[in-house]
Design a binder for these strands. Sequence first.
DNA 1: TAGACCCAGTTATACGAATAACTCGCTCAT
DNA 2: ATGAGCGAGTTATTCGTATAACTGGGTCTA
Lengths: 347, 347
Amino acid sequence: MAGSRPKSGPTMHDVAAAAGVSQATVSLVLNSASGSRFSEDTRKRVRDAVIRLGYRTNAHAKVLREGVAGMIGFIGDSVATSPFAGAIIEGAQQRAWEDGLLLLTVNTGGDKELEAASLDAMLSYKVAGVVYAAMYHRRLEVPAALEGVRSVVLNSQDRAGRLPSVAPDEVKGGYTATRRLLDAGHSRIGFINIETLESGLPAAVGRHEGYLAALQEAGLESDPDLVRFGGGGEEDGYRYAMELLTSATPPTAIFCGNDRGAWGAYQAVSDLRLSIPGDVSIVGFDNQAILAPHLRPGLTTLDLPFVAMGRRAVELILQEAEPEGRVELMDCPLVERKSVTHPKEMP
Amino acid sequence: MAGSRPKSGPTMHDVAAAAGVSQATVSLVLNSASGSRFSEDTRKRVRDAVIRLGYRTNAHAKVLREGVAGMIGFIGDSVATSPFAGAIIEGAQQRAWEDGLLLLTVNTGGDKELEAASLDAMLSYKVAGVVYAAMYHRRLEVPAALEGVRSVVLNSQDRAGRLPSVAPDEVKGGYTATRRLLDAGHSRIGFINIETLESGLPAAVGRHEGYLAALQEAGLESDPDLVRFGGGGEEDGYRYAMELLTSATPPTAIFCGNDRGAWGAYQAVSDLRLSIPGDVSIVGFDNQAILAPHLRPGLTTLDLPFVAMGRRAVELILQEAEPEGRVELMDCPLVERKSVTHPKEMP
DNA sequence: TAGACCCAGTTATACGAATAACTCGCTCAT
DNA sequence: ATGAGCGAGTTATTCGTATAACTGGGTCTA
């Protein structure tokens, strides 16, 4: 059978034959930045032949010679396909493409076997590096094979501290959110957070820390009664907002540790026939695209800079120096909308 | 300089040397399904050496010999990173991996230049095929280079009709939604759709067609006053639901062409001090993960089968036979929640 | 006028794996 | 005793590209 190998486009040899030169000449003409090694005539003949035949360089042959592929591996648990963090892969890909690299992506969905196997395949493809991204900001165990290649942990941190990591600056975010409310004149500020103790999630712990820091800086006592911990769903947001707002001394503002919780809080406020921001100011966290801008009123919240984080992770991979084990924290900018104002005057 | 080429793992030659055999033997031992060509002793020595050295086959060398890579290209405008359709890439990747293939992904963000360049790069990598996915179901122009490789249009249709396409069955979806309301006993059913005339979007046109078909089948006159066309945002949902419900002869149920519109309708219903489904039944479309299950009451809606579509697209690529230009429509299953009941008895 | 040097190319080889074709030593049937 | 056949390997070649090292002629200089 002649057709056992699939049809594969023309090669450099074909181009060389068509242009009446040697294969080496073709290669040199196409690649040499140092322009004028060949006569203008030869160069033109080569370029013409390239176009005429529709020649495209075989990346595998090139990689085989050069050792590294123009690809970066991206392994995510489910981040890349999740509704709120899809942008993370967008940033990574943008940055990679700026250097002409493509992304080889896998969502493992948490499957460790798939993770190992696909990482293996990526290494077989001699990727220039691997981004290991996670859904939630946490400290995680990285697969051992990652140490054999330039790699970066994204939206999480390497528990062992060996790989460089890129993650949101939760503490500063929590501080910024609280500070926004303090600046508006609030002094009783509720906080509906994700549970911190068991989870130990940097997201929850950090935001809480930032909240406390801002209060302290403002010289305010922090009242534990104003802080609630839950699962992060809107039911919890609803329930805790309800509790806070119906207590003896309700807060005039609530910082919700995530936008879904804020959504729940909106519903509670609505059910209490109160209004946002007139009666209660609210700040969220996450800046979820489908939610935050569409709530009424628009939710003032903190943006998780997924695009920037993705970019930064790839940048670290492309960098010459190896930033062993550093954790890079990225700013979460405040996105101002309509859910915050000064507290109501006491009657 | 010795270190000009990056460190690259051990090769078959290294393994062969370590095991005291030839490179060919290593290759044959590792690949031959026809087991016992070599003595058990030799096979063991090879396998031991492989493990000891941490040998991993160089995919590029393999591809160079074999002609096709174990990769499939995935080009999306922004689907892959969009909050509602990220799952599309998940399905594609799952299916690909079942055959041991990885996905080489690019979001072009609509940039035609990036699209062409990255497609070019993919072809350089000898991908086994390319999935060309779009954000919205529409008829689109595909890049010419796609014709040189096995490819499938996903969540859209090739306007030229040359490439096989996979898309949701909008007509059937619109029919199912309307039918659900008819079956519950409604006969005045509003429809808030995305504008169809200018856009010509299959999503909008098809759902409308399905709506009309269901009414006709039920022997009902379709009342144009019950149908509104808008942009698909929740403001439109709000406005049109308001209009419909405050009209002289309001509908008892509304089919919203998308979940965001349904969200707006929920707000209108709430502002009118009516309740869902008691006073108005609502069916959405899209089954947006962040929205539909979290609305109160949960929104009965139609699922856009992104995972299944992604899977199917890759499957078509892997298939032997080339299904020239066929458009494959996928079912949108009804997801039953709490927003539909029978119409209120007239007082 | 020999040597140095440049110009415009070419030849040869390596990258790592797969595989067709071969070798070498034995056994066994005729 | 002859050669067919098999078992257990090896040798040689191929995929497409990049590049070091070479060639063969011309020009310029001392």
